[in-house]
Amino acid sequence: MTIIETEDLRREFIVRAKAGRFTRTKKVVAAVDGISCSIAEGESVGYIGANGAGKSTTIKMLTGILVPTSGRVTTCGLPPVERRKDLARQIGVVFGQRTQLWWDLPLRESFTILGAIHRIGARAAADRIDQLVAELELAEFLDTPVRQLSLGQRMRGEVAAALAHRPRLLILDEPTIGLDMISKERLRQFLVAERAERGTTLLLTTHDMGDIERLCERVLVVDQGQLVHDGALGELRRTVALDRTMVVDYAEPQPPHEIPGTERVGYEIDGLRQSYRFHPTQTTAAKVVTEASRFGEVRDLTLQEPAIEDIVRTLYGARGSA
């Protein structure tokens, strides 16, 4: 069953600029320029692209808070703008950088209020909240005012708030931006479990390849308002295999090492920090770590993933020249 369907979806904005003392120019810019796609219930889809590629505009049209200039969109079988309130009962949305939590009140109260707004019975709401609290490990700060929470804690709260009414579709706009590694991982683990258990459809935008790898079976890449890739992550990797870099911090100074399948691209502070660049088809991150730790005690590891911007640029370049 299809949960999101768009057909030649297009959204234009009029940009006014001052051209002279009295004249103004009007320019029509298409933020979303003819996107057609279909997402089935239960899928998990990464929606990626550079800033300003049209991701947020698409999400606004899917959720009914923006009217398309032309084309067709159906979410959960409903026309989003006309049936915005009915749709809101079936979907959960976390808009990047915007909160739906009550800033001055304990986290717990936001859940109660949202439960009431979605008109789920008090009993059902309480059960669901208890479950989310356990799975997202919110218990220790449930009674803390939201404004005192760390970014990671708050984002887990936001996700719980978006899921409180058991939506069929969860839309997350940049859910892991600014989070530390542990918080990111905790959130990803939860989303994997949530999907496995309830079959919730997931649509997320992100700049983090880790999110895509852990969470998304399918990736849509948008560039300048157009869909430039629609397929599995592996396909994307094969189409655009970009180098990754492993930065290794040793406990003791080291001579420069060679690791098979990699190229050493950094040697700093007498070898305390060494960087190895490798291509995903040549070796894996795990192998690089194993090799690197044979030379001495490793204090810290950082894996530098190719930025989504680079992937998109490469992809777009390939498309443009084809």
Binding site: G64, R84, D86, A88, F95, Q100, I117, R119
Partner: peptide
């Protein structure tokens, strides 16, 4: 732009 959050809720803006 936070009004987007308000509009994406199943409750009337004025009632809210």
């Amino acid at each position: 732009g936070e009004i987007a959050v308000d509009l994406a809720r199943p409750i009337d803006l004025q009632v809210y």
